[in-house]
């Protein structure tokens, strides 16, 4: 579903990704692990189409499309979802209004009919309960005054609501205590499906105890330097990135 080949990407003229090659399959949970500065967030932003992240070489094919030709919002409408490490606060836009606007924009782009406010509310309520996202949170301006855990839960609520084909979770565990982590992980696991490809980006092995990956890829210096099954995550935890990165992939 996602094929990244020899990807080079630069931010402010500095090359961060240096020949990254990665394949994500439908129905599989892929984990990318890597130390700080290895290019994890750059990869997620390049996939989502953020301005300022310039692809200088390589290709990304997604579900039959040349991903790099699509605008950010077109990627979302075609089923790419990025749960962000730092979700932005937007005062003046209520969370529910945001969810409705986004959901209907995606539906419109796909040629589906828009949902009325009542239908959206029902749908959101159903999904929100499991993630302990309260009615009160939905009324508040988007992410404003939300705790770290609340922000991450709202990201996962969107994952559940938008039902993307490819979900990218960028450092979803950062800033979460163990209870919040379990709640978020349960939310993520509930969205696993044979049609959905998932890419979890994380610094620590901790998250992978709760979200068990099918494949683990090690990112260092802007490239995938090692790949393996879920046991690779444990090996990394034991040996450290420096040691594993040295061994041939």
């Amino acid at each position: 579903m996602l094929e990244i080949k020899n990807l080079h990407a630069a931010v402010d003229g500095k090359e961060i990704l240096q020949g990254l090659t990665l394949t994500v399959e439908a129905g599989k949970m892929h984990a990318i692990m890597g130390p700080n500065g290895s290019g994890k967030s750059t990869l997620s932003y390049v996939l989502a189409g953020r301005e300022g992240y310039e692809v200088t070489a390589g290709s990304i094919s997604y579900d039959g499309h040349d991903l790099l030709q699509l605008k950010t919002e077109e990627r979302a409408a075609k089923g790419i979802f990025l749960a962000m490490q730092y979700p932005v606060e937007i005062p003046g836009v209520s969370t529910l209004t945001f969810l409705k606007t986004a959901l209907n924009a995606q539906r419109r782009a796909r040629g589906d009919s828009e949902l009325d406010a009542m239908s959206v509310l029902k749908l959101v309520r159903k999904k929100a309960e499991a993630l302990q996202v309260s009615e009160e949170m939905l009324k508040r301006p988007l992410n404003v005054g939300f705790s770290g855990g609340e922000k991450k839960r709202l990201e996962i609520l969107q994952l559940s609501l938008f039902e993307p084909k490819l979900a990218i979770l960028d450092e979803t565990d950062s800033g979460l205590d163990i209870d919040a982590l379990k709640l978020v992980a349960d939310g993520v696991n509930a969205t696993r499906s044979p049609q959905r490809g998932m890419l979890v980006i994380t610094h620590y092995q901790r998250l992978l105890t709760y979200i068990v990956p099918d494949r683990v890829h090690v990112l260092a210096g802007g490239r995938i330097v090692a790949e393996g099954g879920k046991e690779l995550a444990l090996e990394l935890e034991a040996k450290g990135y420096a040691q594993v990165a040295k061994e041939p992939a």
Partner: peptide, 25 residues
């Protein structure tokens, strides 16, 4: 903020409108 909204499928024009409304609110 603009990137966040667009990454959720909201077209740029609509995202800008939403942010301006939010600013004026």
């Amino acid at each position: 903020s603009l990137f966040y909204l667009r990454s959720r499928g909201i077209p740029e024009r609509e995202a800008r409108r939403l942010l301006v409304r939010a600013f004026l609110e």
